[in-house]
Simulated scan of single mutants.
Amino acid sequence: MDLGIRGKTALVTASSGGMGRNIAHALASEGANVVLFARSQDKLTTVASEIIQQHGVRALAKAGDMRVSSDVTTLVESIKAEFGGLDIVVLNTARPPNPIRATTEEVDMARWDEAYQNQLAGVLQVMSQAMPLITARGWGRVIAITSASVKAPMAHHSLSTVFRAGVTAYMKHLANEVGLSGVTVNCVAPALIETPHRAGSAAYTAAQAEARKRLTPLGRMGTQGELAGVVTFLASEQAGFITGATIPVEGGMLGSLF
C-alpha cells in the first residue's frame, strides 16, 4: 500500500536510538525525508547515514534539547532552510526518572520537575514553534508517543502518567484547533514493547519478563516494528479522518471496551 508520504518531510524527536530511531527508519522506508533531533550529534549522524544509505531519502541530523527554546528555534530554522517546511512531527520523549516508585514515595520535587521537563515541557516547546510550519502547508500529521498508562494508570508509573496525560490533553486541544488547516493530531500509547535497553533481561529478570508476556492475551511482547507501523499509518494519507485519538499499542493488556 502506498501511504502517500513520499517526499514529505518528517521530524522525529529523541531519534538518536531506540524507538525514535525505529520510527524514523519506518517513515523513511515509505519515502519521507526525515529530520532527526536529539542531544547527541554523533549518534544522530550515524542514524542519518543509515537512513540515507538504506532508504535513499534525505536526512538531516540536528542536535539539541527539546526543553531549550533556542535549540528548538535553531531546529525550526534549519528545517525551513533545508526543506522549506514541515509535514509530519513525531513527538518521542525521554523516559521519566529511574528507579520507578509508588506514588506515595514520589516526594522528591526534583524528580517531578525532571519528569515534567522531559515528558511535557519539551513537547510544548517543539509544537509551539513547529506548528506554523505544518499549518502553512495545508496538510499535516502530528503524532505524540505517550503510554498505555494514560488510559489505565499502572503501578509505580505516576511520573510518566501524569505528564503524558498532559500531553494527551494538549494534543486533543491541538486537534480541535488545527483540523481546518488539514492537520490531524493523534497519540500512540504503547506498553509491553520490547526495547533495546531491555534486551537480555537488562531491566527484568527472566521470571519478570515471562510475567509481562502474560499481561496480554497475545502472550508475547510487542515489537518495535509493530509500534513504528502504527505511527507510520497515522502519518499516512489513509489516516486523514483520524484525529484527536489515542491509539493503544499494548497487545490487549488494558482489557477495556474503550
Rank of each mutant, 00 (worst) to 15 (best):
218 L>R: 11
192 L>T: 04
211 A>F: 13
190 P>L: 05
8 K>E: 11
166 G>R: 05
188 V>H: 00
106 E>L: 11
151 K>F: 08
241 F>I: 14
251 G>M: 08
198 R>D: 14
34 V>H: 03
122 G>W: 06
188 V>Y: 00
94 A>S: 13
14 A>D: 13
36 L>A: 05
93 T>I: 12
36 L>D: 03
254 L>K: 06
1 M>D: 07
76 V>D: 10
144 A>F: 02
68 V>F: 12
163 F>V: 03
216 T>P: 08
202 A>P: 08
53 Q>N: 11
256 S>E: 14
55 H>E: 04
52 I>F: 11
208 Q>N: 10
81 A>H: 13
13 T>G: 02
25 H>G: 01
3 L>A: 02
137 R>G: 10
118 N>T: 07
18 G>W: 12
160 S>L: 05
143 I>Q: 00
50 E>Y: 08
214 R>Y: 12
19 M>D: 09
245 A>Q: 09
248 P>G: 06
185 V>A: 05
29 S>V: 03
218 L>I: 15
126 V>P: 02
207 A>G: 12
149 S>I: 02
103 T>W: 05
102 A>D: 15
205 T>W: 06
20 G>D: 09
90 V>T: 05
121 A>Q: 10
174 L>H: 04
246 T>L: 13
59 A>Y: 08
140 G>W: 05
143 I>M: 03
92 N>S: 13
56 G>C: 05
113 D>E: 11
23 I>P: 10
108 D>K: 03
201 S>G: 15
225 G>Q: 11
24 A>L: 10
199 A>V: 12
113 D>M: 06
98 N>G: 13
212 R>H: 15
36 L>I: 11
115 A>Q: 02
211 A>H: 13
203 A>H: 10
236 S>C: 05
69 S>N: 15
8 K>D: 09
189 A>F: 01
125 Q>L: 03
55 H>R: 03
64 G>P: 06
158 S>L: 08
241 F>C: 13
44 L>F: 13
172 K>C: 07
83 F>M: 02
120 L>P: 06
60 L>V: 06
250 E>C: 14
61 A>V: 07
157 H>I: 01
81 A>W: 07
50 E>Q: 09
106 E>F: 01
